[in-house]
Design a protein around this nucleic acid. Structure first.
Lengths: 199, 199
DNA sequence: CTCCAAATGTTGACACGAGCAACATATGGC
DNA sequence: GCCATATGTTGCTCGTGTCAACATTTGGAG
């Protein structure tokens, strides 16, 4: 009789996961990146200090969210490959679109992933590099097929990463809009980039 | 006798400007973007509520700083033109370097310029577009010389902007470092980009 | 010159978030 | 069964953004 499942037990049981998920939801709702630990606790129906049993401080929770974000991004990139056997260029464009879409659809999360608020967490950088590697592999295949110029694949990939990251950020900031940069700017940017990659 | 110049007069005289300059200094010192209105007031040797006579709220001061930042950036771009009559490519590379240097040398300010904390201030966007136009003009000249592919110059410029913005941001975040992206990644990225711009 | 309205500063409040400490309750290994 | 530990709670302290009430200056209008 000490346990009444319909009433909340003293111990939550899986609070850490719930906190992360709740925070994720808040990021998705907010658009703006502005959430408080206390608000997360409130939504999780837990006292304002409870999160400190699972995260040393706020930025640790943010770092966790950032890692989740990079994992998601990585998955989105991997999943972007077209079904039909595509040309490398098609594959490249699809992956780039997937990247930008991810950021535009999750602006607060995306910004968080690159925010200084998460501190310079080593694990976070590792996740970022892990997502980055998906791009490196694509370019390596392109080099084997002779479609992509010679050179260190990770260096060429960095150029691509910078390009899509820049497009994503500017779009989120409302600076990459048709009235400013013209229609079809995304397509143009990707075309310029890819043609620069060709030998 | 009501005025004693060596003692601080009740009215500051030019507080608005001092606040902006103080805040700028703090941004330069901080590296991290983390400053408070009260700290600005403290440094300006003024009461904590004094800034509210000049800015409706914190984000208004931030927006002002952002505008200053875009003006500085614009000046840096304009000043980047090499002395000797250069090829367009040289000019392009120099301007890009100047852009990235600006961001890397003023990380907190640069981040602020693209931060959601400043709100979507219309004036800020205008300043951003104004800086952006320097790039558009360069590409238009390139098109007249037949060095740059045809197409709306502002759309091609957007691709460049995204590239240098991405490089700058990733560098500030410590993700565009040699151990991750290889040595000479900046040069490679700019080469890829420029060659993509050529017809 | 005088006097008042507006501009500009100051003090003191309030609400709220981060983080810490002391305490309460559950859990799991012995 | 019992106690160390993990997990939650309550209640503080401190700092920040913002507002309201009040003080001091300044710049005209008369």
């Amino acid at each position: 009789m000490t346990r009444r499942p319909q009433k909340k037990p003293y111990h939550h049981g899986d609070l850490r996961r719930v906190l992360v998920e709740t925070a994720e939801t808040m990021l998705r709702e907010d658009g703006r990146f502005q959430f408080t630990l206390r608000e997360v606790a409130r939504r999780a129906e837990v006292s304002h200090a409870a999160p400190y049993n699972h995260f040393p401080d706020k930025s640790a929770l943010l770092a966790e969210l950032g890692m989740v974000g990079f994992d998601r991004l990585r998955e989105a990139l991997v999943a972007s490959r077209p079904k039909k056997v595509p040309t490398l260029r098609e594959e490249f464009v699809e992956m780039s679109r997937a990247y930008v879409s991810f950021g535009v659809e999750n602006p607060a999360l995306y910004r968080l992933m690159f925010s200084p608020d998460v501190g310079s967490d080593v694990h976070l950088s590792e996740r970022a590099v892990s997502a980055f590697r998906v791009l490196v592999e694509l370019l390596e295949r392109g080099q084997q097929d002779g479609v992509v110029r010679k050179g260190a694949a990770r260096t060429l990939s960095a150029a691509c990463w910078a390009q899509v990251h820049g497009i994503t950020m500017l779009t989120i900031d409302g600076l990459f809009m048709p009235e400013t940069v013209g229609a079809g700017a995304l397509e143009t940017a990707l075309a310029v980039l890819f043609e620069g990659l060709e030998r």
